[in-house]
Amino acid sequence: MTSPLEARSLSLIREGNDVLDGVSFTVAQGEIFALLGGNGAGKSSTLLTFLGFLEPSDGDVLVHGENVGSDIAAARSAIAYLPEAASLYGHMTAYENLDYFLDLAGKSAGRSDIDAALDRVALPDEARTRRLQSYSKGMRQKTAIALALLRETPILLLDEPTSGLDPVAIDEFHDLVTALAKGGQTILMVTHDVYGACQVADRIGLLRGGQLVGSFTAENGERIDTETVHAAFAQRQSA
């Protein structure tokens, strides 16, 4: 059975620099895979290759077994992407943003569907008709997550998804991601938040200097041990 997401000896050179160097991994259906790494490790670049925004210098990225480069549109239709900056339009309300992006994605959603998604991410009712330029970063992030939910795609790519969220919202987000994975969605998230990654991920890949240098897997229904990962992360960072 083909994995929803697969990177095979993925290498990427940008402006003469090796961003990724022979990275390989797969993410199974219903699995949460977290790529953990410091700044410049190549985490976000890995996500962008799955969307066809960056073209591998070598190796392959596959979505449902198909090379992304051969059909970028098919790959994008299978993926909901949550960028780090939760980039949405400040001059639009949450409703308008969601309606617009869903329309462009060819997805029809009524007001009740949108409300249900916004309820799931706990965006207050009163905020939904306000323009996003008055939102906090956390509220923007929640709106962007709602968009990802509404896309109802089999794959979710999350770039630093808890950045800017308060602790309560982070916990709510972790619960949400876990529920989505249990529902069958495949989730690849990149983060430098060791604690957050250990909270939700079934597997963690440690990325450093564009290379996958370590891997941790949750076993027997237990969470991945934070201290072990932290120690590895810190060791690799200082190496």
């Binding site: 994008r76 400040g90 962007a144």
Partner: peptide, 14 residues
């Protein structure tokens, strides 16, 4: 500049 280009493209727009 605002990052919405990536979001637009990710919705399947070329």
């Amino acid at each position: 500049e605002s990052g919405t280009l990536a979001v637009l493209l990710a919705q399947g727009q070329s």
